[in-house]
Design a protein around this nucleic acid. Structure first.
Length: 566
RNA sequence: GACCCCAUCGUCUAGUCAGGUCUAGGACACCAGGUUUUCAUCCUGGGAACAGGGGUUCAAAUCCCCUUGGGGUCGCCA
C-alpha cells in the first residue's frame, strides 16, 4: 500500500454533513484531525458532505461552523466563515462538485469496475425485509449485473432510473492498516456491491469521500470507528481509480452513560419517546409567544423514522412543551450551560487520548505539540459530565477576577442580556467578583443571582422549612434581627462590602453572640427570597442601600405569612 | 443474526507494542473527618480495577488461544 512520503505535507479533513450543531463526538473527531495537522505543520480542511438531497439545508444546518470556531478549531480550507476557510481545492461542498465526480463514474463504468442497477429502493427494502423475516443476512443478489447488455441499453432508453454499484471482487481478503486498530481484515464476500451513484445522480458518501480526499490531497483520514467497515469500500474505489490510499486512524465512539453511542439523533430519540409517552398524535400548538410551528407533514415524517431530525427551534419548543429534558450532546448545549471552550477542548481530548505522565490539564498548544495517533485508546469512552464540570470549575478558579468578569460579561451579553441592562458596570463587576469562587460554570451566577435583576417588590419568598426556621427561630428571632438591622443599615453611610461587614459584624457581636450566621441568613432571605446567594456583604453591596432596605421591609411586611407553614 | 473491533477502579485513563522496577499510578465520582456567614469551594484521610479459563515463560495486567461481556456496521444516511 502506498505510504505517503515523509516530505508530504500533512492534510487532514473533518467532513460533517450539514445537520445543525456540532455534537460531542464530532467535535472530538474534528479536534483530533486539527491537532494532528497543526502539530505537523499541515492543513486542516473542512468539507461539507451534503450529498443527501432529502436533508434540509436551512441556514441553521451550518450551525456547527460557529461551534468549531468557538472551540478554537480554525480550518485552513473549506467554507468561508469568520476568517476561516477558503482554499484553492474547492468547492468544499460536495453538492457543488457533481461535475467533478462525473468522469470518475464513467471510468469505473467503462472498466467494468462498476455497473448500473435498476432495482428500485422499494424493491430493495422489500428484499431486506424478507431476509430479516427469514433471519438471514441480506445480500444484494447482483440481479442487474446479470442483465445482458442489450437489456441494459433498452432500460436506459426507456428512461428507467438506475443507480451505479461498485462490483466487489469475489473471494479475496480485504485489508488495511489502521494507525489505532492495527491490521483490519475482512473477506470480500462480506462486502455488498455498494451503491456509488444514487438515482438522482448524486454520489453516495463512499464515492464522494474517496474522490474528494484524493483531489484535496488528504494524507490522513481520522474519523469515527463507525467508518471502519466502510474503509474496505473506499480502498476498493481507490484501487479501481488509481488513487493513493491515505493513512487511516479510526477512533472509538463516544458513548452516553448507558454505553450507547452518543449520537446527534439522541435528542430526537428522546423527544419521540416522550411524544409516545404523552400519546401525542399531532404536532402541538406551541405558546403564542413562540413563532415555531411544526407542520403536519413534517411531524409525520419525523415520527416515522428514527434517523430523522427536527430543526433546532422545533426541538427546543417541543421539549419545553412536553416538559422533558433533552440530553446535552451538542457543543452549543455546553456553551449555553456556561462551559469554557478551552475546557471542552481539554476534556474532549482526554476522551480516547492521553499524553501520559499523569498529565491531564493542558491547553490547545500542548495538545498540538503532543498529540499523536499511537496514544489513542481503542475502546469506546463514556462521556462523563461530572469530570467535565470539575475541569470547568478548576479553570474558572484558575482565572483572575478580571478574566472571570470578562468571560461572564460576554456570556451574559450572548445569553442573558438582562443582567447587563439591569446592573451598571460597577455592580456587574461586583457581581462577577462575588461569584467567582463559587461558580462552576458561567451559568451558575446567572442561575443563582436572578434576584438581583428582579424589581424589589417582585421578590418571591421561598416557603420552606429552612426559610421559616431562619426567620422565626432563635432568640432574638431572625425577624427581630431584621427589624434592628433595618435601622442600623438605614444609618450606614459607607455602603460597601467592607462597610457592611464592619457594621453587621459589630451588630452580630452585640446581639447574636458573635454568630454571624444568625443575622446573615435572615438578611439573605430578606433580599434574595431564599437561603442561597453570594457572600452576604457582597450581595448587599451590589443590591445597594435602597433595594436592601426595600426588601428587608417587604420581608418584614410578610412576617405573618412567612411564619406559618404553607 | 452475520461481520469488524474492543476489554485495567463506578467513570476517563497510565502501564501492554520492547514480560520482571505493578502488594497496579493519576484524575473525576464516592465515603469519613475538618475549614467556611448560605450555596459552592478548600484541606486531610479512605475504599475501589488487571472480565473468566487455559496455555507460553524462571517470571504475565503485559504474549497466544477459548469463553464471556461491550461497542460498531450491515441504507439510493453520512
Amino acid at each position: 500500500m502506498p505510504e505517503n512520503a515523509p516530505s508530504t505535507r500533512v492534510r487532514t479533513r473533518f467532513a460533517p454533513s450539514p445537520s445543525g450543531h456540532l455534537h460531542v463526538g464530532g467535535a472530538r473527531t474534528a479536534l483530533f484531525c486539527w491537532a494532528y495537522a497543526k502539530g505537523r505543520g499541515g492543513d486542516f480542511i473542512l468539507r461539507i458532505e451534503d450529498t443527501d438531497q432529502k436533508r434540509s439545508s436551512d441556514a441553521s444546518s451550518m450551525a456547527f461552523l460557529e461551534d468549531l470556531k468557538w472551540l478554537g478549531l480554525q480550518w485552513d480550507e473549506g467554507p468561508e466563515f469568520n476568517g476561516s476557510g477558503g482554499g484553492d481545492r474547492g468547492p468544499y461542498y460536495q453538492s457543488k462538485r457533481l461535475d467533478t465526480y462525473k468522469p470518475y463514474f464513467q471510468k469505473l463504468l467503462d472498466s467494468g469496475a462498476a455497473y448500473m442497477a435498476f432495482e428500485t429502493a422499494e424493491e430493495l427494502d422489500a428484499a431486506r425485509a424478507t431476509a430479516r423475516a427469514e433471519k438471514r443476512a441480506y445480500r444484494y443478489d447482483r440481479a442487474s449485473l446479470k442483465l445482458d447488455p442489450a437489456t441494459v441499453e433498452q432500460y436506459i432508453r426507456e428512461g428507467r432510473p438506475y443507480v451505479v454499484r461498485f462490483k466487489v471482487p469475489d473471494d479475496t481478503q480485504l485489508t488495511f492498516r489502521d494507525e489505532v486498530l492495527g491490521e483490519v481484515a475482512v473477506s470480500s464476500g462480506e462486502v455488498d456491491d455498494f451503491v456509488i451513484r444514487k438515482a438522482d445522480g448524486y454520489p453516495t458518501y463512499h464515492f464522494a469521500v474517496v474522490v474528494d480526499d484524493e483531489l484535496m490531497g488528504i494524507t490522513h483520514v481520522i474519523r469515527a470507528q463507525e467508518h471502519t467497515n466502510n474503509t474496505f469500500k473506499h480502498n476498493l474505489i481507490q484501487e479501481a481509480l488509481g488513487f493513493n490510499r491515505p493513512t487511516y486512524a479510526h477512533i472509538s465512539v463516544v458513548t452516553n452513560p448507558d454505553g450507547s453511542k452518543m449520537s446527534k439523533r439522541d435528542k430526537d430519540k428522546a423527544l419521540r419517546a416522550a411524544v409516545r409517552e404523552a400519546k401525542l398524535d399531532n404536532a402541538p400548538e406551541f405558546q403564542p409567544g413562540t413563532d415555531v410551528t411544526i407542520r403536519e407533514e413534517e411531524w409525520a415524517w419525523w415520527m416515522e423514522s428514527k434517523d430523522r431530525q427536527l430543526n433546532m427551534e422545533a426541538v427546543k419548543a417541543l421539549a419545553e412543551y412536553l416538559g422533558v429534558e433533552v440530553p446535552e450532546i451538542d457543543i452549543d448545549d455546553f456553551r449555553r450551560a456556561g462551559y469554557l471552550p478551552e475546557v471542552m477542548v481539554n476534556y474532549l481530548a482526554l476522551l480516547g487520548w492521553s499524553p501520559g505522565e499523569n498529565i491531564e490539564k493542558f491547553d490547545r498548544d500542548f495538545l498540538i505539540q503532543r498529540f499523536s495517533l499511537d496514544r489513542i485508546v481503542k475502546s469506546p469512552a463514556k462521556f462523563d459530565r461530572d469530570k467535565l464540570l470539575a475541569f470547568n470549575l478548576d479553570a474558572i478558579q484558575a482565572m483572575s477576577v478580571e478574566q472571570f468578569t470578562d468571560r461572564l460579561r460576554e456570556h451574559c451579553r450572548q445569553f442573558h442580556p438582562e443582567f447587563l441592562e439591569k446592573l451598571d458596570d460597577d455592580a456587574f463587576s461586583m457581581l462577577a467578583a462575588a461569584n467567582h469562587e463559587r461558580s462552576k460554570t458561567l451559568e451558575d451566577p446567572v442561575r443563582t443571582c436572578r434576584f438581583f435583576v428582579v424589581p424589589d417588590d417582585h421578590i418571591v419568598y421561598e416557603h420552606s422549612k429552612p426559610v421559616r426556621k431562619h426567620l422565626t427561630g432563635g432568640e432574638p428571632s431572625g425577624f427581630e434581627h431584621l427589624e434592628a438591622l433595618a435601622e442600623t443599615l438605614a444609618e450606614l453611610s459607607r455602603w460597601t462590602a467592607e462597610g457592611l461587614e464592619h457594621a453587621i459584624s459589630e451588630y452580630a457581636n452585640v446581639h447574636a453572640s458573635g454568630k454571624l450566621g444568625k443575622v446573615a441568613q435572615p438578611l439573605r432571605i430578606a433580599v434574595s427570597g431564599g437561603t442561597v446567594s453570594p457572600p452576604i456583604f457582597d450581595t448587599l453591596a451590589i443590591l445597594g442601600k435602597q433595594s436592601t432596605l426595600n426588601r428587608i421591609n417587604l420581608c418584614l411586611a410578610k412576617r405573618e405569612e412567612l411564619s406559618t407553614p404553607a
